[in-house]
Design a protein around this nucleic acid. Structure first.
Length: 465
RNA sequence: GGGCCGGUAGCUCAGGUGGUAGAGCAUUUGCCUUUUAAGCAAAGGGUCGCGGGUUCGAGUCCCGCCCGGCUCACCA
């Protein structure tokens, strides 16, 4: 028998022992008086005297460490990323509870009832009077000192990663704060949150290859959306003048430290503004989000201080430093030579029309459009433009894209007749923007890989024969 | 897809030039009523990612494959 099986059988055997003592191996509801973080916040700085006469608590958590010393012992309970020590002695808990304590494994989930005290070395602890068994672990936990380090296991078994590595938990708490901050700011400005189709008969709103799926009853192929853009603008036509969506996009392309096949975008549209208005708004949104998520406008990313307090604005032609370049050549040089050097938050504006099929032309320079992208730490995190609202020009742009598709460009835009029809009813002048939530989270959590900010990144599945 | 790196006990890792696989944590047993990487004593635990090959002999050398990481290309 392998060690793994041996450990498993050992613990299955322990279920019988737990039940023989009158406990359930998979216990009942446990009403606690405090979470462990609450105990630490409330009593963490109280002296032994201040804990008298008696502070009674009921707390629950997962056993993180055990130190047994004959007829007494200690354990640390882990809950919500924080640890509280408990002290169990035979003469305080009685025969039965002490027998239960003696058979505990690291990873078991228990509840304790008792009172707070300070140990000789000063650690705030619970002097246990009753022990409750809540859930049995059958598998052994990662090592207490190094935690779980194997990157593949961390992604495949994120639950273990979350138990063993407190900083992982923090990343995802920060991610939630980022999303909450953006929602709060958009709500405050009168934006309405909406949901638009993930399953789309025509995919659009970006240049990318899609995932294809099939609906059986309708017997049609559908695409997982690559962007919600065209639907959101239909809503602007419909009079929802400020809308946003925070949701997943799917792109059937490469995987890297900056790309996951499904990723989360914020897209928002505001009628009666343009890309200059969006630059002002973006600056404020990013500054406030950094502040809400990290407590500071200046964050450290991979050794660089990134300042969201003021965002530089530069035209693409200035950034490239060659005013004669245009079209695809300009973008190519920009991406090859400039993009990775944009460490501080930077808005790069005025894109060639060729790469921007949905953006409005600059009136005085129609070969350029009113578009900008936001770069931070060498990564594109946002893309925004004054929306093209002339249906006849939009049709010409789609036709340009179809011509590219004919030449083999698999990422060229499809024709969307209903979108052109929607524009034909009249869309107000509108600014629209997308912000990549995953990449923004990378920067605000100092994460090197997009997989570190996505709970379950896509990995090739392993065969279980 | 290309290049580089990695996969050894449940976890974290050692294993120059080939010679029957080690440590710490975890586990088991004993002792221990304020410990905290508790301690002391003892024990068990491995298809060395998978498959071929070279060799008397492969964790180690060669070939192929699988999985992962980084990076380049592509993309957001």
């Amino acid at each position: 028998m392998s060690l793994e099986d041996e450990l498993y059988e050992q613990r299955v055997g322990r279920i019988a022992e737990i039940e023989a003592l009158g406990f359930s191996a998979y216990g009942q509801r446990f009403d606690f008086t405090h979470t462990i973080p609450q105990v630490l916040t409330e009593y963490g700085d109280k002296s032994a005297e201040q804990l008298g006469p008696r502070v009674g608590v009921r707390v629950a958590g997962r056993i993180a460490t055990i130190r047994r010393m004959g007829k007494a012992g200690f354990a640390h309970l882990l809950q919500n990323g924080e640890r509280l020590q408990v002290y169990v002695r035979k003469d305080a808990v009685g025969e039965k509870d002490f027998a239960l304590y003696e058979g505990l494994d690291i990873g078991d989930i228990v509840g304790v009832e008792g009172y707070l005290f300070r140990t000789r070395t000063g650690e705030l602890s619970v002097h246990v009077e009753h022990l409750y068994f809540l859930a049995k672990t059958l598998l052994s936990m990662p090592e207490k000192w190094h935690g779980l380090e194997d990157i593949e296991t961390r992604y495949r078994q994120r639950y273990l990663d979350l138990i063993a590595n407190p900083e992982v938990r923090r990343v995802f708490l920060t991610r939630a704060k980022i999303v909450a901050s953006l929602r709060r700011q958009l709500e405050a400005r009168g934006f309405l949150e909406v949901e638009t189709p993930m399953l789309q008969p025509i995919y659009g709103g970006a240049a990318a290859r899609p995932f294809v799926t099939h609906h059986n009853t309708l017997d049609i192929d559908l695409y997982l959306r690559i962007a919600p853009e065209l639907y959101l603008k239909r809503l602007v036509v419909g009079g929802l003048e400020r809308v946003y969506e925070i949701n997943r996009n799917f792109r059937n392309e490469g995987i890297s430290t900056q790309h996951n096949p499904e990723f989360t975008m914020l897209e928002f549209y505001q009628a009666y503004t343009d890309y200059h208005g969006l630059m002002d708004l973006s600056e404020e949104l990013l500054r406030q989000t950094a502040l809400d998520a990290t407590g500071s406008e200046v964050v450290e990313y991979q050794g660089e201080k990134i300042d969201f307090g003021k965002i530089r604005r530069v035209s693409m032609r200035e950034a490239v430093g060659n005013p004669s370049l245009k079209g695809h050549n300009l973008v190519e040089v920009f991406e090859r030579q400039v993009e990775s050097t944009l460490i501080q938050p930077t808005m790069v504006y005025d894109y060639p029309v060729e790469v921007s099929p949905l953006s409005k032309n600059k009136p005085e320079e129609p070969e350029f459009v009113e578009r900008f992208e936001i770069y931070v730490a060498g990564m594109e995190i946002g893309n925004a433009f004054t929306e093209l609202n002339d249906p006849r020009e939009q049709r010409r742009r789609f036709e340009m894209q179809l011509a590219l598709r004919e030449k083999g460009d698999q990422e060229a835009h499809q024709m969307d007749e209903d979108y052109v029809r929607a524009l034909s009813y009249g869309m107000p002048p509108t600014g629209g923007e997308g912000i990549g939530i995953d990449r923004l989270t990378m920067i605000l959590t100092n994460s090197r890989s997009i997989r570190d900010v996505i709970l379950f990144p896509l990995l090739r599945p392993v065969d279980h024969e």
